[in-house]
Amino acid sequence: MKIIHQSKDNDLSSFTAFLAVAAHRSFRSAADELNMTPSAISHAIKVLERRLNVRLFNRTTRSVSLTDAGERLASKLRPAMASIEEAIQELESDDHRPKGVVRINASEGAIRLVLRPVLARFFREYPQVHLDIVSDGKLSDIVADGFDAGIRLAEAVPRDMVAVSVSKDVRFAVVASPRYFEQRGYPKVPHDLHGHDCIRFRFESGAIYRWELERLGVAERFNASGPLTLTDQPMMVDAAIDGIGIAFVPEHLAADALKDGRLKRALEDWCPAQPGLCLYYSGHRHVSSGLRALINMLTETLSDS
């Protein structure tokens, strides 16, 4: 409190700049977040370091990292600044209704499964909130890329993030057309897949997804091979319906085709349910009223389903 008491009027903005650089490990990314120039950010940090008489960052031409003193200051400032921002936002919002822009990074499947069902209702209830939703198949660093939150499978959420469950458990399905199975036979154990044409999935990072099958605690990971590789899971379902091969896809994407007989399942007892999708965000940043409203709606929808 002594530092705050003796501080100058622009210390609040200097502390904000310091925390932005600490979060992004980049002066340019911090400048983009705060709508400032990199030179203004650099100047604010230099002034703060000079007044505190301590170096807060180690800088090279390629990287920015916190010093020990910087780490200590950041750990103390984060909760304090979050409280200040929350208090200011509450005072500025006379009607207390959520407003502002909320940036969400999610896979296309997550957008369709979790966000699309609530969007119309969300905008009716919160007309002053703008959702900026980016479909991204990569596991982006949501903090570095300027997103407020991301949506991914629970197993893919970074451990340092706050995660909120927004879907039921998910289950994958090994599927192909009835004609394909009639001609090529049904695989009875995962090893049998080696004799089949498989439809592979490629992440935007370029990596090929390895099929993960499990039964009675025994896990099998299978590097699928076949004539077709796609980056779109609904298209994988279409390819399986067309008899091109066997696909391994989220069950809900194949549900209609399984129901009407265009697809058949195999290895069903090797496809247990897994923890579903989570919305996640950094616990070191203030949760805006718009993001909080979205989280509340998604969790209420999940509990009612």
Rank of each mutant, 00 (worst) to 15 (best):
M1S: 15
M1R: 10
K2V: 11
H5Y: 06
H5N: 12
S7P: 00
K8N: 13
D9W: 00
D9P: 06
N10P: 15
D11Q: 06
S13V: 13
F15W: 04
A20N: 02
V21P: 00
S29K: 15
A30M: 02
N35W: 08
T37F: 08
P38R: 05
P38C: 07
P38E: 03
S39F: 13
I41E: 00
S42P: 02
L48Y: 00
R50S: 11
V54F: 10
N58E: 08
N58C: 07
T60S: 12
L66R: 04
L66A: 00
D68N: 13
A69F: 06
K76I: 11
K76G: 08
K76Q: 15
P79Q: 07
E92S: 10
E92T: 13
E92G: 09
S93N: 06
P98K: 08
P98Y: 09
V101Q: 14
R103F: 05
R103S: 15
R103I: 11
E108G: 15
G109I: 14
R121D: 14
Y126T: 09
P127K: 04
Q128F: 15
Q128T: 12
V129W: 02
D132G: 04
D136Q: 10
G137S: 08
G137M: 03
I142W: 00
A144C: 15
A149F: 02
I151E: 02
L153Q: 10
E155D: 14
V157I: 11
S165W: 14
V166T: 03
V166G: 01
V170T: 06
Y180A: 04
E182F: 06
R184L: 07
K188R: 15
V189G: 09
H196R: 12
C198E: 07
C198G: 13
R200T: 03
R200Q: 13
F201V: 03
R202Y: 08
S205G: 11
A207D: 12
Y209L: 09
E212D: 08
E214L: 05
A219S: 09
R221A: 12
N223M: 09
N223A: 04
A224D: 05
S225L: 15
G226R: 00
G226M: 13
L230W: 10
D232A: 10
D232P: 12
Q233C: 10
M235W: 06
V237L: 01
A240Q: 08
G243I: 06
I244G: 02
F248K: 02
V249H: 00
H252D: 10
A257Q: 05
A257K: 05
G261S: 01
K264N: 01
L267V: 03
E268M: 13
W270N: 00
P272S: 03
P272I: 04
Y281H: 10
S282L: 13
G283E: 00
R285H: 06
V287D: 07
R292T: 15
A293K: 03
I295S: 06
I295T: 09
I295H: 07
L298R: 02
T299H: 07
E300H: 11
S303D: 13
